[in-house]
Simulated scan of single mutants.
Amino acid sequence: MTTSDPAERYFTAISAALGGLDIFLRDDRSPLYRHDLVARVMAEYIVRLENSFSSWKNRLGFMDAFKISRAESGYPVFQNVLELENDRRQADKRLAAIPEPEVLRAEMADFILRHRAMPDALRKSMAERLYLEQVSSGQVFAPFILPKTIRVSVNPKTGRPIYVVHWAAFDGSANLPLVYMATVEDSSDNVVRALVGKDGKLNESVPIPLPVEGLLNPDLAHRFDDFAEKNSAYTLSPATIAGNLDKDFDQLHPKQLRRVVLGPFYSAGITEHNSTVADVLAKVRRVENAWLLTWTIQEVFSKAETPARRGLFSSQPAREEFHINTDDLEAARQGVSNYERHALIPHEAYQVLYAAGEAQKIFAGYKVHIISNGQVISDV
């Protein structure tokens, strides 16, 4: 592929964008770095996305089918994500049927010497082998990525353990990667007895090898996995997801739910979801700088908890009251307590937008971050 090839231009641009986002996440001057846990979680999923795009690029060496959501998200369509996951599961079986790399290289060299031509079939076998070896690692962005507990503490006011859990999904309708983080208190008697010491603090004699796959509470872990998978759609507001979690688990009390919507992504000559952005990015000289990546951080938190009621004839478990910022129409529409919109753009592209007089209109309501010489410049 050459830079004139649309696929090569797209992969070059998205690789640069994800690399820039990784720089932003790790920069101690960036806004997200102040929330170190958020930055660390996001960095993990950025690696998965980078591996996915690298795999898709390798897949083009033996398969021609690859589609992106040009008019909406700018990401690959969901079918590509499903195929990647299916190939990951079948990788070992398929690899067993393909000769080892050194065997393929020897056969390719022999073919070239004897026929004075490129061995297309062998070349495709080599490309497929490299692709399958990469996806077999499992570190790609799957349709759904199971929850993981990464932090445990105790709320001194309630005496309950607190978990910080994250998971992710690639939404099939919006074609967008979504990352979720939840802060949840657990009032299960067995967990409280095991994790909370007599001093009201975390019982340090109980080993917790963080991160833990799934919810830390083993009795609820499978149910929580199922819940997360069924409640990760982009069409569900954070308030709806948090409310469903509160209703479905009497012993779990969601205090905060954060969702990061990674996109849309804009690439010159490829995406079509904003004609103004497309026209301006087309004027950027270097392909690796002709992109714009946006993301939205949505958050809903509990403002109060209605205490449990126990009576002779009926009982009611504790329930959360979630704050929705009705003073902000957009926050109310999104079903969140607050939200932030961010945009990441190379310095060269930002200069072109600014010179065209479009920067202020395009970035209205966004926190803008510019990548320049491997550094992040924010709040421009």
Rank of each mutant, 00 (worst) to 15 (best):
V81M: 15
P99C: 01
A16G: 02
R105A: 05
E340Y: 12
E330F: 14
F111Y: 12
A290L: 00
L210G: 00
G374K: 04
P346S: 05
F24W: 11
A13W: 01
F24Y: 09
A168T: 08
K57P: 11
S15T: 09
D189E: 15
S30M: 10
Y234E: 06
F265N: 00
Q360D: 15
S69C: 08
S136A: 01
P207A: 09
T235S: 15
T326M: 11
S237C: 12
P99W: 02
H222A: 11
W167R: 08
P211L: 06
T158P: 01
V376C: 02
S302K: 12
A355T: 10
V261T: 02
A233Q: 13
K93W: 14
E133V: 10
V41L: 03
K303N: 13
L281Y: 05
E107C: 05
P238T: 12
V184H: 02
L202S: 02
F141M: 07
V165K: 06
I145H: 00
Q351F: 07
A117K: 15
R319N: 09
V277R: 00
N325K: 11
H35F: 12
P101V: 11
M118H: 15
Y266H: 11
K303D: 15
L82G: 10
P209V: 06
W56H: 08
P156K: 00
Q316K: 13
E44W: 06
A39S: 09
N51L: 06
D219F: 13
D328K: 05
N58M: 15
A364R: 11
K148T: 11
E185I: 01
E320M: 10
L245Q: 04
A17C: 04
M108N: 03
I162N: 03
L281C: 07
S15W: 01
S4T: 15
V284Y: 08
Q316V: 14
E229Y: 03
V352T: 11
Q251G: 07
E72S: 14
